[in-house]
Design a protein around this nucleic acid. Sequence first.
DNA 1: TTAAAATAGATAGTATGCTATCTATTGTGA
DNA 2: TCACAATAGATAGCATACTATCTATTTTAA
Lengths: 153, 153
Amino acid sequence: MSYSKNIIDKNNLLFHIGLLTRHWRKVLDVEFQNCGLTEATWRPLLHLSHLGDGIRQKDLAASVGIEGPSMVRLVETLIAKGLVDRAEDSTDRRAKLLSLTDKGHSMVARIRETVLFREEQLLNIFTEDEVEQLAGFMERLESAVADARRKGK
Amino acid sequence: MSYSKNIIDKNNLLFHIGLLTRHWRKVLDVEFQNCGLTEATWRPLLHLSHLGDGIRQKDLAASVGIEGPSMVRLVETLIAKGLVDRAEDSTDRRAKLLSLTDKGHSMVARIRETVLFREEQLLNIFTEDEVEQLAGFMERLESAVADARRKGK
DNA sequence: TTAAAATAGATAGTATGCTATCTATTGTGA
DNA sequence: TCACAATAGATAGCATACTATCTATTTTAA
């Protein structure tokens, strides 16, 4: 296995993808610290806005790609910040329905601007073709990892 | 921003890279749970083996890509498992020198087999050319993210 | 119809990363 | 020389993810 800092190859590719993830997250967290949000909290807001009001916690968790119990705490945080409402579901008393408050809606607008701008800016180092290639690679990786997870269980 | 589960594009690429990282880590953690290690603990062992005995904690942390305080706890875990030794540095009494125990060396051999096999297996969905392209994309991304981090500070 | 299985969410405990700060030691410049 | 800055590691506390488990419901099947 190669440990060079600058050269990425087959032997350290996954390691570097992991590093990249943490470092990019930190960049966005710095960007957002003035509105008191982190990637963990703004991402559910974005997904909630996209899926629409009245969705269940478990569906939001699935959309964001985390487990239910991880979402519980994040929702509590977002409610405490006045960005999200949690209501009873009259058709299923086990469930809770989530919706954005007015404050939540304006925060989503702000998040969209910031995230889209920063991620666009980062990915502008690539041509459109390259982005498409990279996205294709990631789709294939994701599906292979999903297979590996299924086999492991 | 697109939220489709299967289609990755410029707007959700970074999100999917993050998801991929967590999911792959989980696959390896399942693989390693019978020897009581996780990615966080086996990776320092690999890097220690590569860098050689007698290195300092801070250098190991830098190699693995984590901060010093994060390494402290991991080293304690590895010492408790009898895989690593921590000795005084006679030339600098602030520093500690790390080395692999015999048990640590044989664990490294086992880790190498497992990780290399699994990662090779995963990346075999790509041709050699594709791996090279992907690695090149990641190098460029990493360097762009490093620039963004420097600017943010 | 009703007992068992499944589901939604909450709670508890664990792991892993971070920053801020502390102590002890070493290096440096007036 | 000697006060101050820098460095190595440790400690404390926070954030975020996980699994396992609990309660309260709803669904299913005998």
